[in-house]
């Protein structure tokens, strides 16, 4: 057996890498949630539902802006050289997902704002005539509105995928070396968003629709998980070890119980009953889904940092 003794003892790196704490998972989760909400509200705008007073697409944008800002604040907290944070925006690094991300986030804000201004609530319209003007302008240009809807869906997709690619581009962590991670985070974001909207939607139709949508997202998510692990298991030993960290290793309990069990399977079951009118809609399922989404980010970030290439060069 191999015995490795290292004299290195660098903070955040040894005995195992722990450069990211709670901030990054929270940031990734909120990013994914917002991505989901952008796609959902973008869709409603696209198919014209925004004309309905009660359409969630009229208040989702403002919630998204808040959620996104909270996420970016978490990211800011994690950064070690805070006075240099503006450096993200003095350059664009084409190979760096993080650079992509920071610019996407910059575009996301106006997109959300545009969505919001399409049909802001009356009180605001009364208070600020300027806003009234804009929304009237929009109502005169339905074609433009459609495109804003589409734009938000696309941006949402990019944002959701980015939250996953950010990790999968970090070569050193076998658990993250999977292009599927982007898809996984996107779908997980969608399911969280759907659950969230399902929970707060005023409109009965939307609630039904999103409950159904959420169920399908959850099913897809399960499927993507399957692909994710198959991918790792068909790669090198270090990738297999990484996968086992989550499936049978130290992170397995959280993963199976909270992410899969309480985060996907149980709510899927409850919501299936609900959509088939066997039981009433309750916030239980959506809350579980949302918590599951959050914990997914935690597990992936933690276990990912723990997973490593083995420096063993001696023949076993």
């Amino acid at each position: 057996m191999n015995e490795l003794y290292s004299t290195r003892n660098n903070n955040l790196i040894d005995p195992y890498v722990h450069v990211w704490g709670w901030e990054i998972p929270v940031y990734l989760f909120l990013g994914g949630l917002v991505a989901g909400m952008m796609i959902i509200s973008g869709y409603f705008i696209f198919n014209g539902r925004y004309k309905e007073e009660k359409c969630s697409c009229n208040f989702l944008p403002i919630i998204s802006i808040i959620a996104l800002s909270l996420g970016m604040f978490a990211l800011f907290l994690d950064i070690e050289y805070k006075v240099h944070v503006w450096r993200f925006y003095t350059t664009f690094q084409i190979t760096s997902p993080m650079s992509w991300g920071s610019w996407i986030l910059i575009i996301v804000y106006p997109a959300l704002a545009a969505m919001f201004l399409i049909n802001p609530n009356n009180m605001l319209k009364e208070k600020i005539p300027y806003i009234k003007k804009i929304s009237e302008f929009f109502s005169k240009h339905p074609y433009l509105v459609k495109n804003i809807g589409i734009g938000n869906m696309i941006l949402g997709g990019m944002l959701g995928i980015y939250t996953g690619i950010l990790l999968s581009s970090l070569v050193a962590r076998p658990l993250w070396n999977s292009s599927i991670l982007g898809m996984l985070f996107l779908v997980s974001g969608l399911s969280s968003a759907a659950a969230f909207v399902h929970m707060i939607a005023k409109d009965r139709y939307e609630r039904e629709l999103l409950a159904k949508a959420d169920n399908s997202f959850l099913v897809i998510e399960l499927f993507i998980f399957l692909l994710f692990f198959i991918g790792l298991f068909t790669a090198t030993q270090v990738h297999i070890d990484a996968a086992n960290l989550m499936l049978s290793g130290s992170y397995a309990p959280v993963f199976w119980v909270f992410v899969i069990g309480l985060g996907i399977v149980i709510p899927l079951f409850i919501q299936s009953l609900a959509v088939n009118h066997k039981i009433q809609h309750t916030p239980v399922a959506p809350i579980l889904v949302i918590l599951g989404g959050l914990l997914l980010r935690f597990v992936i970030v933690e276990a990912g940092q723990y997973s490593k290439w083995i420096t063993t060069t001696l023949a076993k």
Binding site: L12, H84, V85, M98, A172
Partner: peptide, 12 residues
Amino acid sequence: CTGCKACLASCP
């Protein structure tokens, strides 16, 4: 450098 630590995480 912003101290975002991506490079730390990316170094095998």
